[in-house]
Amino acid sequence: STAGKIFRAMYDYMAADADEVSFKDGDAIINVQAIDEGWMYGTVQRTGRTGMLPANYVEAI
């Protein structure tokens, strides 16, 4: 389960779609929910934006 875990971005990511979020390497991602194998839903702490993000760009900390 991803509940209550904080994730950290390992790479920069530029949102490719309106429902995705952009983030930079080192950003903390909070309130994360796993959607499926490849995608998560969460909030980028630095920007306050919430949306979909690729699971392979982040790691649990």
Results as ranks from 00 to 15, higher is better:
S1G: 13
S1K: 13
S1W: 11
S1A: 15
A3T: 13
A3H: 14
A3E: 14
A3D: 10
A3M: 12
G4V: 08
G4K: 11
G4I: 08
G4C: 07
G4D: 08
K5N: 15
K5C: 11
K5T: 15
K5S: 09
I6W: 06
I6S: 08
I6T: 15
I6R: 10
I6K: 10
I6L: 11
F7I: 01
F7A: 08
F7C: 05
F7P: 01
F7R: 07
F7M: 06
A9S: 01
A9D: 00
A9K: 08
M10K: 13
M10P: 00
M10S: 08
M10H: 05
M10W: 03
Y11S: 13
Y11D: 12
Y11A: 14
Y11P: 00
Y11R: 15
D12K: 03
D12G: 04
D12E: 07
D12L: 00
Y13F: 00
Y13T: 04
Y13A: 01
Y13P: 05
Y13W: 03
Y13E: 01
Y13L: 02
Y13Q: 05
Y13G: 05
Y13D: 10
M14R: 12
M14E: 15
M14F: 15
M14K: 12
A15L: 00
A15W: 07
A15F: 03
A15N: 06
A16D: 08
A16P: 06
A16R: 15
A16G: 09
A16M: 14
D17E: 08
D17S: 14
D17P: 00
D17G: 14
D17A: 07
A18S: 14
A18Y: 10
A18Q: 13
D19E: 03
D19T: 13
D19G: 13
D19F: 06
D19S: 14
D19L: 10
D19M: 07
E20I: 04
E20Y: 03
E20W: 07
E20T: 05
V21N: 07
V21Q: 04
V21A: 05
S22P: 04
S22A: 05
S22V: 02
S22Y: 12
S22D: 08
S22G: 06
S22W: 01
F23L: 07
F23T: 06
F23G: 03
F23K: 07
K24E: 08
K24W: 05
D25S: 15
D25R: 15
D25V: 14
D25T: 15
G26V: 02
G26S: 01
G26F: 02
G26T: 04
G26D: 05
D27L: 00
D27C: 02
D27A: 02
D27M: 00
D27P: 01
A28P: 07
A28W: 12
A28G: 04
A28Y: 09
I29S: 07
I29E: 01
I29V: 04
I29R: 01
I29M: 03
I29G: 05
I29W: 00
I30P: 05
I30E: 04
I30R: 04
I30V: 11
I30D: 04
I30L: 10
N31I: 04
N31L: 07
N31V: 04
N31Q: 09
V32G: 05
Q33R: 13
Q33M: 09
Q33A: 11
A34C: 14
A34G: 11
A34Y: 14
A34L: 11
A34E: 15
I35F: 09
I35Y: 05
I35E: 06
I35R: 12
I35W: 09
D36R: 14
D36Q: 10
D36K: 14
D36S: 14
E37F: 04
E37P: 12
E37R: 11
G38V: 13
G38R: 14
W39I: 03
W39M: 08
W39Y: 06
W39T: 13
W39Q: 08
M40Y: 10
M40T: 07
M40S: 04
Y41I: 11
Y41M: 14
Y41G: 05
Y41P: 05
G42Y: 06
G42D: 03
G42W: 02
G42N: 00
G42M: 00
T43C: 08
T43M: 06
T43P: 00
T43H: 03
V44C: 04
V44Q: 02
Q45A: 13
Q45G: 09
Q45Y: 09
R46D: 01
R46P: 03
R46T: 02
T47E: 05
T47L: 02
T47R: 00
T47A: 02
T47H: 00
G48Q: 10
R49S: 13
R49W: 02
R49E: 15
R49M: 15
R49G: 07
T50V: 11
T50N: 05
T50C: 07
G51E: 00
G51H: 11
G51C: 02
M52K: 15
M52R: 15
M52Q: 08
L53W: 01
P54L: 01
P54E: 01
P54K: 05
P54G: 03
P54F: 00
A55H: 01
A55S: 12
A55L: 07
A55C: 10
A55R: 11
A55N: 09
A55Q: 02
N56G: 10
N56W: 07
Y57R: 10
Y57G: 05
Y57P: 05
V58C: 09
V58K: 00
V58R: 02
V58F: 03
E59S: 12
E59P: 03
E59R: 12
E59W: 00
E59H: 14
A60V: 13
I61L: 13
I61N: 09
I61R: 11
